[in-house]
Simulated assay, not measured.
Amino acid sequence: MSDTLTQHHDGEDSIRFRLASSPKEAFMGSQHGDRTMNPNDTNRPDPLLASLPDPLLTLVEDQLSNNESAGDEELRSYFIACGLTTEQADRAVQYRPAYATDIYWGNATPIRTGVGLRYNPRSGWLEPA
């Protein structure tokens, strides 16, 4: 299996994503040296959030990634209204900086796996977040 994933667009140039071969290589190619944005430092799925039903977890991650207009308290209240406990909503909001700054590959996200794969536009690599 190749360490390069290639996605072609109709009639346009291809976009190449290269997987880093080691955590050191990924870190050296990273444009952000900061690894502190993930409140889950166990490198395992988040014990409070990863067990949520998939549609609810997808909603949470979508809001963390894309909702730039709501403040943290408003987002927390929205999560509670959608069915999260207060503790789960508080924990989800702690992930906001990580989801706001990185684009994650598939289900390899900080909440679902503990270590997300993010796209680094500078190097063109997928690397551990």
Results as ranks from 00 to 15, higher is better:
9 H>C: 13
69 S>D: 07
36 T>F: 13
47 P>D: 15
12 E>A: 11
1 M>D: 10
86 T>H: 15
113 T>C: 14
70 A>F: 06
95 Y>N: 01
68 E>A: 09
81 A>S: 11
127 E>F: 01
71 G>Y: 04
124 G>A: 07
76 R>T: 11
22 S>E: 15
117 L>V: 14
26 A>P: 08
115 V>R: 14
19 L>S: 03
86 T>N: 15
62 D>F: 10
72 D>E: 07
78 Y>P: 00
96 R>G: 02
37 M>V: 08
129 A>I: 06
3 D>S: 14
117 L>D: 10
5 L>T: 12
95 Y>S: 00
12 E>I: 09
37 M>I: 07
45 P>I: 05
14 S>N: 12
121 P>A: 04
59 L>N: 03
6 T>H: 14
126 L>P: 05
101 T>W: 10
79 F>P: 00
76 R>K: 15
92 A>F: 00
57 L>F: 05
103 I>A: 08
105 W>R: 06
10 D>I: 13
42 T>V: 13
6 T>E: 15
21 S>D: 11
8 H>Q: 12
63 Q>L: 13
29 G>S: 12
19 L>I: 02
80 I>G: 02
129 A>Q: 09
64 L>I: 08
64 L>K: 08
38 N>K: 07
71 G>T: 05
80 I>L: 02
11 G>L: 14
102 D>T: 04
91 R>H: 03
66 N>A: 03
71 G>V: 02
27 F>P: 02
40 N>H: 13
70 A>I: 05
17 F>Y: 15
96 R>E: 02
35 R>W: 07
